[in-house]
Simulated assay, not measured.
Amino acid sequence: MRRYSKENTIADASHTGPRHVAIIMDGNGRWATQRGRPRLFGHHAGARRVREVVETCPDIGVEYLTIFAFSTENWKRTQVEVAGLMSLFRRYISKEARSLNQFGARVRFIGDRVRLDAKLIALMDELETLTAGNTSVNLTIALNYGGRDEVARATQRLARDVADGKLHPDTVDEETLPKYLDTYVLPDPDLVIRTSGEARISNFLLWQSAYSEYEFIDTLWPDFSREEFTRLCASYGMRDRRFGGVKK
């Protein structure tokens, strides 16, 4: 893992870029505080940034984009902030559904929906159905998502199949569990980006990111730009990825 500074330059951007990029969108609250505004002001600014990143993906060869919108731990925030975020999610889905569909984005949601309200779940279902045939970019939104929670839920489903005789314990290996994860239809992320200067993964895609490359950048999410996203993806293409092997 390494930090990326805006001063880094890319000597040759022709290398193969990441197919799947996952982003921990951090820094909305600090961005708002720096401007003397409430934290929700920053969350609204961050939501507007998502569209620019999504629209950049096809231009730079990114087929899959996964964004961390709300974690299972975020329920610990104040009731006002949580309620504001849930309202923002409903508003974002309603407002952006048409443009996402027209752009050709296929939208999926991952995470545990049990704690989400019925109206939000209905909007999520509608957006997934509306965009199911789109192919320009696969946008996955992690909402009430936690990596440990995902693995626990996947293990429960796997255990039920074993108990029902659909799966033999001796056949369970590292290729089995991914079929029970929320992301079973997605490739593992090649590159994980975290904004705001924090250098931790915060329970995001724990199983899937075992061999992902990481970029921890100082930029707060509302300031994250198309140019910086493009630069980070180009930087990925310069890396020597051996997956535990030795370069010949």
Score class of each variant (00 low, 15 high):
A234R: 11
L232K: 06
L191E: 00
R241H: 12
I67D: 00
S212C: 06
A83E: 10
D117V: 07
V54D: 01
S94H: 14
F41Q: 10
D190C: 03
G29E: 03
A32S: 10
D149E: 15
S225H: 10
T155Q: 09
R194M: 04
M124C: 06
G104R: 08
F68A: 00
V137H: 01
R30A: 04
V246A: 12
S235C: 09
R90I: 02
E63N: 09
F41E: 14
V107T: 03
N101Q: 08
H15L: 13
H15C: 14
Q79I: 12
A69P: 01
W31G: 09
T16S: 15
F216L: 06
W207V: 07
E198M: 00
N138Y: 12
A210S: 15
R226G: 01
Y211N: 15
S225K: 12
I67N: 00
D240T: 13
G42A: 06
I193G: 05
A122Q: 13
R35G: 03
E126V: 10
V246M: 13
G197R: 01
G42L: 04
I201Y: 00
Y214L: 14
G27K: 04
L116S: 01
A154I: 01
N203M: 06
S225F: 07
Y145W: 07
Y145M: 02
D125P: 01
E175M: 15
C233Q: 04
G46S: 11
D125S: 08
E150A: 06
